[in-house]
Amino acid sequence: MARLHFNLDTDQLKEEIMDSNLKDVTKAAVVLLLNEIMENERDEYLKAEAYERTETRTDYRNGYYERELLLTIGRVTLRVPRTRNGEFTLSLFEKYSRIDQAFVLSMLEMVVNGVSTRKVKQVVEALCGESVSKSFVSSLTAQLDPVVNEWANRPLGLTRYDYVYADAMYIKVREHHKVVSKAVYIAYGINEDQKREVIGFQVNHHESYTAWKEFFQSLKARGLHSPQLVISDAHEGLKKAIQTEFIGTAWQRCLVHFKRNILMTVAHKDKKEVAMALKRVFDVVSPEDARKWKDQFVDDCLETGRFQKAVAILEDGFDDAIQYLTEPVERHPFIRSTNHLERLNQEIRRRERVIRIFPHTQSAFRLIGAVLMDYEKEFSKRTLWGRKKRNKSKKS
């Protein structure tokens, strides 16, 4: 291991101590130390001390230049040695460039996880003693663009997604000096390992048949095969796009939304009774059982003349709401509603509440994509119905 011989300028250090506060003293000591480290690195590279003549000398000294470095104690100015042929490089800056990268990544992680740019600015100032603008913090997030774009356009043909969930949410975006609402389309699928995976998202002007169709076409262009089941709410444009783009795919109407629509037609005092009847209809293992309990509920209502609107909605959407019953029983809790996707939407909302209004569409795409990528890491840790089997085996 090479030894470092420090020739510190004690007069300079003494002067710094007498005339500066403690923080400046620390910075001055660090500058002297780092300058000496770099000087020794150059000596080792040259294989010769200053004014020393040796047969092993590789190059000659060529003065110094100044360079700033941002450390946790603040910004310091260093006296960087150089050589005549210009091939000499310092390990010091390589090391601190990695630290800088880690620091930038930490700032990005704060932004993605819902910390406002104002708070990030305060954290940087507390750690480094450097004041940075909110626009500087915002510009850092642009580094996410290539990462998010690559992830958002990755091929989907390498695995099969038997179940695909689709939903849209609305955000506010500043556009042409106006604040407008835009739809964020999100789709995630359950892959062959029984793990959830965000397979696509898009920011568009509004939720419509044309927009949903284009979104599904983009997924197919990336290799998505027609799934067995698409789970979503009953938006007319979304339903039509599913039928158009996924031939042979069944549509599962979100059971939670469906029950909610039925209960909205019932007086408050009767909600509990109707909710129990719906639970009996849908908490079964086969379409035949569901139809039997549904028919019994409908007959009782017709005899008493009660809940006519609720019955009409139930009859109209019943077949679309029981498609999950044709799948294996252990999968039923996971494929009968879009609840998992609603949880994903909440994560986006948490970040959106901090921002309130996205400055432009690209910033919305960038940050929502980063949130989805981060949340998908949690998806990859857990299987769905496979997990239940393991728990049962442990109990036994």
Rank of each mutant, 00 (worst) to 15 (best):
T10G: 02
Q12M: 09
L13P: 03
I17S: 06
M18Y: 15
S20D: 06
V25W: 12
E39R: 09
E41A: 05
K47N: 09
A50P: 15
Y51M: 07
R53G: 12
T56R: 01
N62R: 14
Y65L: 14
L70F: 08
L70N: 08
L71K: 03
V76P: 04
L78G: 05
T83G: 11
T83F: 09
E87R: 03
S91C: 04
S91H: 12
F93D: 00
E94L: 01
S97D: 10
S106E: 09
M107R: 01
G114K: 00
V120C: 03
V120F: 09
V123C: 00
A126E: 13
S131Q: 15
S131C: 11
S133K: 07
V137C: 01
Q143H: 12
L144H: 05
D145E: 03
N149K: 15
A152H: 00
P155H: 07
T159C: 10
A166L: 08
I171M: 06
K172C: 10
H176S: 11
V179C: 04
V179W: 00
A183M: 08
N204M: 05
H206I: 12
H206Q: 10
Y209W: 13
T210H: 00
F216Q: 01
S218V: 13
K220M: 12
R222D: 08
G223D: 05
S226R: 02
S226N: 09
P227S: 06
E236T: 14
T244R: 11
E245I: 03
Q252S: 04
L255E: 12
F258V: 07
F258K: 00
R260V: 12
M264L: 12
A277M: 10
A277G: 05
A277S: 15
R280G: 12
K292C: 15
K294V: 07
V298T: 08
D299F: 08
D300Y: 14
T304N: 15
Q308R: 11
A310G: 05
V311T: 00
A312W: 01
F318S: 12
F318A: 07
Q323K: 14
Q323D: 03
Q323S: 07
L325F: 05
E330L: 12
H332Y: 02
S337W: 02
I348M: 00
R349E: 08
V354K: 01
I355R: 03
R356T: 14
R356P: 00
P359E: 11
T361W: 02
Q362W: 07
V371Y: 01
D374H: 11
D374I: 14
K377H: 02
W385Y: 01
G386Y: 04
K389E: 10
R390Q: 15
S393Q: 15
